[in-house]
Design a binder for these strands. Structure first.
Ligand SMILES: [Mn+2]
Ligand SMILES: [Mn+2]
Ligand SMILES: [Zn+2]
Ligand SMILES: [Zn+2]
Lengths: 148, 148
DNA sequence: ATCTGAAGTGATAATAGATACCAAAAGGCG
DNA sequence: CGCCTTTTGGTATCTATTATCACTTCAGAT
């Protein structure tokens, strides 16, 4: 149903619904942590023959229509863009520094902060790019353990 | 004096103060809008013979010690990292979508938001990556004008 | 000031994520 | 069912960034 909504949004915005796009969206939805285009292309390419160009284009497209989100906080030493499936309203993402699990953070009061920033600076149409990073409970536990 | 503080911070953190690092920091400080390693390397390389590897390494280093900031909100269709000089306390950046001017935003109440997110999710050591984007007054004006 | 080990530099080569291209295939709509 | 446009995907290519490594320079100790 999440997937159906995503495909609907494609149509609404004037894009075709193709098997490839469905496959990419489904793989993104199923991924337990953020994935890169290359990772998806490797997996999907092997199992379904989908081309890597299509994977790149589809991720970009899904991000444009708001069905995917390209993380702003890249992992250190990784220069590839990573995406998460993301169809609901404006919200943010909390990423574990260690295992890269992503948890959605219900919309915080950022709209008001945007307004405040706009007022103080005179800028118009202020919006934000925001990710949170931290250590998830499991990783925090194992890190404490390892520190003997 | 901004520059001197930056060089001091290098020493404090156990790094050498070299002419190259001074030059990179100075160029970054003088830049009116965010610059990439390549841009700095082109300019500085021509005028001073500094190598591009050094520019890359220095920008990374300056960011690590908190003297430079690598913007999270990359410009569309540009895949290069862009940096701004940035020596004062934790704060954020508001970037014009059109001319890429950067204005510093005095620390908003993000520390509390981090705490709130940590409490709600059980994550530890929560921090954030946050940039604001918008249209600066000048660009907003010219955009209105052009839309005749 | 001189010495010395560690850190920094930079020309070159290599990597790798992302795009450009374009002919073939498939989607949407009348 | 067609037509026209969009989409696909193999290949070639680009380009930002990193790896290498011989050489130089820095900073702290003598
Ligand atoms: Mn999400
Ligand atoms: Mn700053
Ligand atoms: Zn974790
Ligand atoms: Zn502007």
């Amino acid at each position: 149903m999440e997937l159906a909504i995503a495909m609907d949004r494609l149509l609404q915005k004037g894009h075709a619904v193709t098997p490839q796009r469905r496959l990419v969206a489904r793989a993104l939805l199923a991924a337990p942590s953020p994935v890169s285009a290359q990772e998806l292309a490797a997996t999907l390419g092997a199992s379904t023959g989908i081309g890597q160009m299509t994977v790149y284009r589809t991720l970009t497209l899904l991000a444009e229509i708001g069905v995917a989100y390209q993380l702003a906080a890249a992992e250190p030493d990784r220069h590839e863009a990573r995406y998460v499936f993301c169809s609901s309203d404006h919200h943010h993402h909390l990423i574990c520094r260690a295992c890269h699990t992503v948890v959605e953070v219900a919309s915080c009061a950022m709209a008001e902060v945007d307004q405040d920033v706009a007022q103080r600076t005179g800028f118009q149409g202020v919006a934000h790019h925001l990710d949170f990073v931290g250590l998830c409970p499991q990783c925090a536990a194992s890190e404490t353990r390892e520190a003997h």
